[in-house]
Design a protein around this nucleic acid. Sequence first.
DNA 1: CCTATTATGTCAATATGCTTGACCTGGATG
DNA 2: CATCCAGGTCAAGCATATTGACATAATAGG
Lengths: 146, 146
Amino acid sequence: MLDLDDPAPSGDLHAAIEQFYFAYRGFTDRPDRILERRGLGRVHHRILYFIGRRPDVSVRGLLDLLAVSKQALNAPLRQLIEMGLVRAVASTQDRRVKRLALTPAGRKLEAELTEAQTRHLRAAFDRAGKEAQRGWRAVMEELVKG
Amino acid sequence: MLDLDDPAPSGDLHAAIEQFYFAYRGFTDRPDRILERRGLGRVHHRILYFIGRRPDVSVRGLLDLLAVSKQALNAPLRQLIEMGLVRAVASTQDRRVKRLALTPAGRKLEAELTEAQTRHLRAAFDRAGKEAQRGWRAVMEELVKG
DNA sequence: CCTATTATGTCAATATGCTTGACCTGGATG
DNA sequence: CATCCAGGTCAAGCATATTGACATAATAGG
């Protein structure tokens, strides 16, 4: 169905664009379906993920990471707090700031979601080999920088 | 701001998840802004791209590639045809089927959009090196398959 | 102390992108 | 002729996002 081996000049880069597109789509697919069963969306996943990886992150910090408006963040974040998946504590240094962290239930869901992705990634890394994995990481690092 | 070098066990895979997320976001950013100036969205880009890469693709073929409902495809596709960027010709074999192709104007816009991405990719590939590029491609291929 | 800025939250209006369901035409196919 | 398939369209609904405006509380700086 897909023609990912295009021999045309600069076809390599076109093929890479398509791989990027399809790979990313497949990558978000599984967590999306887990979330759907709970009535949650991809935003909730991103929030859970980043709070899990950066405990005590502030709302502002989350906004900067996710690059969305505070209105777009607020509703799903409140929902996660109400569901008992995220806990917010006022910072002692600056009591305007909320320190966000996962509750045990939040950690559990986050682990379930992220595990679907790590399994997916690990399988691809294993099949492609250690050297390819290093290359993938190196290119991704450059893409993020540039 | 970002902590992409996490030394924790299995932190490699978490770091990879974040790289994937940020890299993809950055990757779609530039074309999105070009499209915004014309009042078009990412769907239009995907349509233009796939028609450009698969001339004479049918509407059904596009639907399968993009994995969206025909209602989601129809409006932007019609818009592109009305703007003179895409041309549709009934297939001679099966006159129910439309063969879609880019007009010269469509090819021009598509090239402009795709060039933003190929430049981005090429720069990252160049900085990371040929071996890393091969690795990236290999991992992506596995991700698409798995 | 007063003012400005920052962090957070909320209400409203709006846009868009996508979904499912239903229904239609026209052409192919048995 | 009946059925299936490609394509198109109308409708309702939902999710995600935006900008703008405004409120509160707390910190920071003159």
